[in-house]
Design a protein around this nucleic acid. Structure first.
Length: 423
DNA sequence: TCTGGGGTCCTAGGACCC
DNA sequence: TCTGGGGTCCTAGGACCC
């Protein structure tokens, strides 16, 4: 049996831990640049504020109902997440941290002491130790655990824990669940299934298997099997190495200047190389992209992107920044209002397992060892004195930076942000 | 004025190899 | 009339997840 533990309205709950006066009030958390809603308290959902809705369109509702509005504070949410995961890891023999606010647990062996009872204990432990409320769904496959979790969240009578023990219970639950709510069925597949008379999760479970395999491919066939209690998606206990690493941002206001865009790209490249070293990997491919707003008129819209091979697989910030600047030079076209840009590293392999290849042509930046030591020194300084203390010269300007007007303090990750508690 | 960021997997088709 | 069989790698696009 699998359990899916999911934090309720996670980002909002994180803000509430440090400001309990937010309890009972409508609260929203905005995406970077204060653009869209990415988390809503139950009270905010009740006001009709939609997930992903652009905040500026709902300004009247926000003001009228005195909704508490927060800019995204990812250092805080990431830190709270790891605290929750640590508690969960103590209470189950196996855990897969599936996303920032969800984890699958291995519940094998808990049947004797009672699955529901144990999951209630898990729920209380997380609440007591971190202040974060969670819901738990239990089922014989990950997909059914997900489905059970939705029921646990939606129906108060379950008190946050829902078990789909046998086939009859699963069928009854699936009959009440729209097919688009099933994990793995997105907007497109939902539309397709609706057109073919498949409206509930139960309809999908009972659909002819060959037909599902043909139209929804292998991934859809797995979803169907999982709904029928045949587990196809194992618990992934060890996180595999990332296949790509991306850093991108929308700009607070449009950028038109090539040099300014170059500064942003240098900054993103720097962050990518840092993440890559955190993964203990080296990358062989680099992509740079820059684009105008998708809401521009077609004539003034531009999507620039190019991928190049790096001369040698590397994790060196200087090499990555240099390559990114060269690519930007090639794809930049003047006269456009750039609203977003980013850098992607891919073709990632292990730094340890893959010794640097012998090369026929490349002479510059070939020696690996000095660069590794330089990066170690760079990371040591920046980790101690703050990211950006040592940086490449082109990683400078702040002009493209984002809007974050409603940011809460980094309560758990920054000494300067610790607020003295008054009696 | 104003619309996020970071990922994964699958399929199809083209280009190439022997 | 009739033109093989078995592969790999790369890219683009689509679909999905949080």
């Amino acid at each position: 049996m699998f359990a899916l533990v999911d934090c309720n309205n996670f980002y909002v709950s994180c803000e509430r831990v440090f400001d309990p006066s937010l309890n009972g009030r409508p609260v929203v958390v905005l995406s970077n640049n204060d653009g869209c809603f990415i988390a809503r308290s139950n009270e905010a959902k009740a006001l009709g504020l939609p997930m992903g809705g652009p905040a500026f369109r709902f300004r009247d509702i926000l003001r009228k109902h005195r909704v508490a509005v927060y800019s995204a504070n990812f250092p805080l949410y990431g830190d709270m997440s790891s605290r929750v995961m640590n508690i969960l890891a103590e209470l189950a023999p196996g855990i897969e941290a599936y996303s920032i606010d969800e984890a699958f647990l291995d519940l094998s062996g808990f049947r004797l002491i009672g699955l529901v009872g144990h999951c209630r204990a898990v729920r209380q432990a997380v609440r007591r130790s971190t202040g974060i409320p969670v819901s738990v769904g239990i089922g014989p496959s990950k997909t059914l655990a997900k489905l059970a979790n939705r029921i646990a969240k939606k129906k108060p009578e379950f008190d946050g824990v829902c078990l789909l023990e046998d086939e009859a219970a699963a069928r009854e639950a699936m009959a009440t669940m729209a097919v688009g709510e099933v994990w793995g069925i997105g907007r497109r597949h939902k539309e397709f299934l609706d057109r073919n008379g498949i409206r509930t999760a139960l309809d999908l479970a009972d659909a002819p298997e060959g037909w599902v395999r043909r139209h929804l491919h292998i991934t859809g066939a797995r979803v169907q099997a999982e709904l029928n209690g045949r587990s196809c998606l194992p618990l992934e206990l060890v996180r595999s190495r990332k296949q790509s690493i991306c850093t991108s941002r929308s700009f607070g206001s449009a950028v038109t200047d090539r040099e300014e865009l170059g500064q942003a790209v240098a900054h993103f490249a720097t962050k990518c190389a840092l993440k890559l070293r955190g993964e203990k990997g080296v990358a062989s491919l680099l992509t740079v992209f820059a684009c105008t707003s998708p809401f521009e008129e077609p004539a003034t819209r531009y999507w620039a992107t190019r991928t190049v091979s790096l001369p040698l697989p590397t994790q060196d910030t200087l090499a990555v920044v240099k390559a990114a600047e060269t690519v930007l030079e090639e794809i930049f076209r003047p006269g456009f209002r750039y609203k977003k840009a980013g850098v992607i590293l891919s073709g990632i392999s292990s730094h340890v397992e893959a010794p640097p290849p012998l090369t026929l042509f490349v002479e510059e930046n070939a020696p690996c060892e000095p660069s590794t030591r330089l990066m170690a020194a760079l990371d040591a300084v920046n980790s101690r004195y703050g990211q950006g203390t040592l940086r490449v010269a082109s990683d400078t300007a702040e002009s493209w930076k984002q809007q974050q007007e409603h940011l809460s303090p980094h309560y758990t990750t920054d000494w300067d942000d610790i607020i003295p508690i008054r009696p």
